[in-house]
Amino acid sequence: MPVKYKLLISFMVVIAAAVTFYFQSKAGEAVTPWVALGLGAFMIFSMWVFPEEQKKKK
């Protein structure tokens, strides 16, 4: 996946995790906001660290 797409997806995940954290915090939840931030960080980490599957050329 090209780097510009990875950056775009990373930015969207950060925004989604931050919005979820904000609204869950306002709702009075104690654990759920941190789970959202952790999941967002894990998704970004996974996308950048683990390579995509490549088709084998014959």
Rank of each mutant, 00 (worst) to 15 (best):
M1V: 02
M1W: 00
M1L: 03
M1D: 06
P2V: 10
P2D: 10
P2E: 10
V3P: 12
V3H: 12
V3S: 12
V3E: 12
V3T: 13
K4D: 15
K4N: 13
K4V: 15
K4W: 13
K4H: 14
K4G: 13
Y5V: 13
Y5N: 14
Y5D: 15
K6H: 09
K6E: 07
K6Y: 10
K6T: 09
K6N: 09
L7M: 09
L7T: 07
L7N: 00
L7S: 08
L8C: 03
I9V: 06
I9D: 10
S10C: 08
S10F: 02
F11T: 07
F11E: 09
F11L: 09
F11N: 07
F11S: 04
M12L: 06
M12G: 09
V14Q: 15
V14R: 15
V14P: 15
V14K: 15
I15V: 04
A16Y: 00
A16W: 00
A17I: 00
A18I: 06
A18E: 05
A18V: 06
V19M: 09
V19C: 00
V19Y: 08
V19T: 02
T20C: 06
T20H: 03
F21T: 02
F21E: 02
F21S: 02
F21G: 00
Y22L: 02
Y22F: 05
Y22P: 04
Y22E: 09
Q24Y: 13
Q24L: 13
S25K: 01
S25C: 03
K26T: 02
K26F: 00
A27G: 00
A27H: 05
A27C: 01
A27S: 07
A27R: 06
G28F: 03
G28Q: 06
G28E: 04
E29V: 07
E29G: 04
E29C: 04
E29I: 01
A30G: 08
A30C: 09
A30L: 05
V31E: 10
V31Q: 08
T32S: 14
T32Y: 15
T32V: 15
P33S: 03
P33M: 03
W34T: 14
W34S: 15
W34N: 14
V35P: 12
A36H: 04
A36E: 05
A36W: 00
L37G: 00
L37E: 03
L37D: 08
G38A: 01
G38Q: 01
L39W: 05
L39Y: 03
G40A: 04
G40I: 01
G40Y: 01
G40D: 04
G40V: 05
G40T: 05
G40S: 01
A41E: 04
F42K: 04
F42Y: 00
F42P: 08
M43L: 12
M43E: 11
I44V: 11
F45G: 11
F45Q: 11
S46H: 15
S46V: 12
S46N: 15
M47K: 03
M47G: 02
W48V: 03
V49R: 10
V49L: 11
F50E: 07
P51I: 03
P51T: 01
P51L: 04
E52A: 11
E52P: 12
E53M: 01
E53H: 01
Q54M: 11
Q54E: 14
Q54W: 13
Q54H: 14
K55H: 14
K55N: 13
K55Y: 13
K56N: 10
K56G: 12
K56I: 11
K56F: 09
K57W: 13
K57G: 13
K57I: 14
K57Y: 14
K58P: 10
K58S: 07
K58L: 02
